[in-house]
Computed example of a mutant assay.
Amino acid sequence: MMEEFVKETLAQDVGRGDLYALVEPSVAATARIIAKSDGVAAGVEYINILAKLEDFEISWNVHDGESFVKGDVLANISGSSHVLLKIERTLLNMLLHASSIATLTKKYAEIVEPYGVKLLDTRKTRPLLRVFEKYATRCGGAVNHRMGLDDSLMIKDTHLKTIDDLKIYIKKARNRIPFTAKIEVEAENFETAKEAFEAGADIIMCDNMTPEQICEVVKYRDENFAHVLLEASGNISLQTIESYAKTGVNAISSGSLIHQANWIDLSMKMD
C-alpha cells in the first residue's frame, strides 16, 4: 500500500516525463533537506521507499517522531541530477505534509501526557490520504482511532436515530460483528451516556460535552461500570484539551491534529 501511494504521488508530478531531462545531460549530484522552521519529523518511511524506487541514496539525520529546529540538515541525498530534480517536489510534499501533522500532534500530546490520557486522531482525513495522515499523527505521539467502518462498531448520534432499543441492538451486534471488535456509543449528554452504559457499550464517547458534564459521566462510570472506557471529543483545541484531560477520561480524540495542521517550512538545496 505504501509503495503504491509513493508511485502514484510521483507519477502525478512527473506525468509523461521531466522536460528538463530532455535538455541537459545527467551528472552526479548531491543535495540537502534543510529545515526552515522548527518541527517534528514524519514521512521518513515513505521517502525511503521513494529512494529505493528511484535509485538515489538518502542519509537521515532525524527519524520519524524526532524534533528538529530551524537550520538543521534533516537529510543528505546523492544520485543523478535528473533523478534528484525529478523527485524533489514529491519528496518535499510527503515530508512537509506528514511533518506538519506530526508537529501539531506533538503539541497536543505533550499537554495530555502528564494525565495518562491517550491522544487519538479521527476519520476526518483528506480523501485517499487516511493511512498516510494517520501515520503522521502516530509520529507526533497520537494513537490511531479506528481506520474505517470495518474495524470497530461506533454508534453515533445519526445511528441512534435509527435504533429503537440500544440494548437489544448491542446484544444483536455481539453475534454479528467480529469477536474482537469493540462497540463504542456516542453520547451528547449524561442520559445518553447512562443508557449506553446499561446497554453494554465497551467505550462511550462524550461528544461536545463540557468538562463539568464529563466529570459527571466519569463519576458514574467509576461507581457502576469501571470496565467501560471513556473518550472525550468535539471541538477539542490546544487551548481546551488540558481541561478535558483533567476529567478522568481514558482518551481524547481530535480531528484538529490533521485538518488544522499548518505546513512548516522545509527546502531541498543542491550542493
Score class of each variant (00 low, 15 high):
residue 2 M to N: 12
residue 2 M to L: 15
residue 5 F to S: 06
residue 9 T to S: 14
residue 11 A to N: 13
residue 14 V to D: 14
residue 20 Y to R: 09
residue 20 Y to L: 08
residue 23 V to Q: 07
residue 24 E to H: 11
residue 25 P to K: 08
residue 27 V to I: 11
residue 31 A to G: 06
residue 34 I to R: 09
residue 37 S to N: 00
residue 37 S to F: 01
residue 38 D to Y: 00
residue 38 D to A: 07
residue 42 A to M: 01
residue 51 A to P: 07
residue 55 D to R: 13
residue 58 I to V: 14
residue 62 V to C: 09
residue 69 V to T: 15
residue 70 K to V: 10
residue 72 D to I: 01
residue 74 L to E: 01
residue 77 I to C: 02
residue 82 H to R: 15
residue 82 H to T: 14
residue 84 L to I: 10
residue 86 K to A: 15
residue 87 I to H: 00
residue 91 L to K: 00
residue 93 N to L: 03
residue 94 M to Q: 04
residue 97 H to V: 02
residue 101 I to Q: 06
residue 102 A to M: 02
residue 103 T to S: 04
residue 104 L to E: 05
residue 108 Y to R: 06
residue 110 E to L: 13
residue 112 V to D: 11
residue 112 V to A: 09
residue 112 V to Q: 07
residue 114 P to R: 10
residue 114 P to Q: 10
residue 122 T to E: 09
residue 122 T to L: 01
residue 122 T to N: 03
residue 124 K to R: 07
residue 124 K to Y: 03
residue 126 R to V: 09
residue 128 L to T: 04
residue 128 L to F: 04
residue 129 L to H: 11
residue 129 L to S: 10
residue 129 L to Q: 12
residue 131 V to E: 15
residue 132 F to Y: 15
residue 136 A to P: 04
residue 137 T to G: 06
residue 139 C to T: 02
residue 141 G to E: 01
residue 142 A to C: 07
residue 143 V to I: 10
residue 143 V to E: 14
residue 144 N to Y: 06
residue 149 L to I: 09
residue 149 L to M: 15
residue 151 D to Y: 11
residue 152 S to N: 11
residue 155 I to L: 15
residue 158 T to R: 06
residue 158 T to E: 14
residue 162 T to H: 13
residue 165 D to P: 14
residue 166 L to D: 09
residue 167 K to M: 07
residue 168 I to T: 15
residue 172 K to P: 00
residue 175 N to P: 02
residue 177 I to Q: 04
residue 178 P to Q: 08
residue 178 P to S: 07
residue 179 F to M: 02
residue 180 T to R: 08
residue 180 T to N: 14
residue 184 E to Q: 12
residue 185 V to Y: 04
residue 188 E to L: 02
residue 193 A to Y: 03
residue 194 K to Q: 13
residue 205 M to V: 04
residue 206 C to L: 11
residue 209 M to K: 05
residue 210 T to N: 13
residue 210 T to C: 11
residue 210 T to V: 05
residue 213 Q to W: 01
residue 214 I to Y: 08
residue 216 E to N: 12
residue 219 K to C: 05
residue 222 D to N: 15
residue 225 F to E: 06
residue 226 A to C: 00
residue 230 L to D: 13
residue 230 L to N: 12
residue 233 S to D: 05
residue 233 S to P: 00
residue 237 S to M: 07
residue 240 T to Q: 07
residue 245 A to E: 10
residue 247 T to H: 00
residue 251 A to F: 01
residue 252 I to A: 06
residue 258 I to K: 04
residue 259 H to Q: 02
residue 260 Q to P: 03
residue 265 D to W: 08
residue 266 L to C: 03
residue 270 M to R: 09
